[in-house]
């Protein structure tokens, strides 16, 4: 079927163009911040990709969670496809978040990490789980037992989210410290808001395109594997 692939490629192309435009706008068009109030005034522009990356990694982890639950409960192949895609994209976008966040933190606050920051630590936990799942999928035999374990790991990873939320909240009470990701409670400049919105939309298109294409490729790879196994059996019998 060419349609899902064509749609996927269209989404990816549109999303990529949108991301590039958002990045360029963020660098050249977004207003400057007050240099007397910011230690690294240019570094703030990291948010124009960092925040959309965070949003997209959130979507990817949702896909991973739904896939893990689906396989855990029903052992359905479409669910496994979601585990594969969700873990790949969770790793991709999560990695972007947990590298760009500390880079900004070093520039602005002089500290790369804050154990009291809920979002950063939750993303780090989930990215580590995604990395584990990607490595496990690549290194292990692909059978029901392996998939069961990987789905369990995926669900375990999601149990870590509320645990991390409670832990960081409690820890923050005693160690208020610096929050790496700025709170959105302060009003945003309209230009900044627009560029962020365009980043969100572009990244979502990109994400949807990646999901569609990745699912399609994994499904094709599974079909191919089935054909190859038939050939293996034919060779053995022959």
């Amino acid at each position: 079927m060419r349609h899902p692939r064509s749609m996927a490629i269209a989404c990816i192309v549109m999303g990529s163009i949108g991301v590039i435009i958002s990045a360029v706008l963020g660098i050249f068009l977004a207003p400057d911040v007050n240099p007397s109030q910011w230690r690294a005034p240019e570094a703030y522009r990291i948010i124009f990709l960092h925040v959309p990356f965070a949003w997209t990694s959130f979507l990817a982890f949702i896909v991973l969670f739904i896939g893990s639950l689906g396989w855990y409960l029903r052992r359905s192949e479409p669910s496994w496809r979601l585990v594969q895609t969700g873990s790949d994209l969770g790793l991709l976008f999560g990695f972007g978040v947990i590298t760009s966040g500390p880079i900004w933190g070093m520039a602005e606050w002089g500290v790369p990490w804050d154990w009291a920051d809920l979002r950063l630590n939750t993303f780090a936990m989930l990215t580590a789980v995604a990395l584990f799942i990607v490595m496990a999928r690549r290194s292990q035999f692909d059978d029901d037992a392996t998939r069961d374990t990987i789905a369990s790991v995926g669900l375990f990873g999601f149990m870590l989210v509320p645990i991390t939320a409670v832990a960081t909240t409690l820890y923050q009470k005693r160690h208020p410290g610096i929050v790496i990701v700025e709170s959105e409670s302060s009003g945003l400049d309209p230009v900044i808001r627009t560029i962020l919105l365009s980043g969100f939309i572009s990244m979502t298109f990109l994400f949807v395109g990646f999901v569609m294409l990745s699912n399609h490729l994994y499904a094709k790879e599974a079909d191919l594997e089935r054909e190859l196994k038939k050939l293996d059996l034919a060779e053995e019998v022959g």
Partner: peptide, 19 residues
């Protein structure tokens, strides 16, 4: 320090990883 190098590094990592 304006943070321009940090900006460049972060953007390189994020866009590079997408690529």
């Amino acid at each position: 320090m304006s943070g321009i190098y940090h900006l460049a590094l972060a953007y390189s990592i994020m866009i590079g990883s997408l690529f």
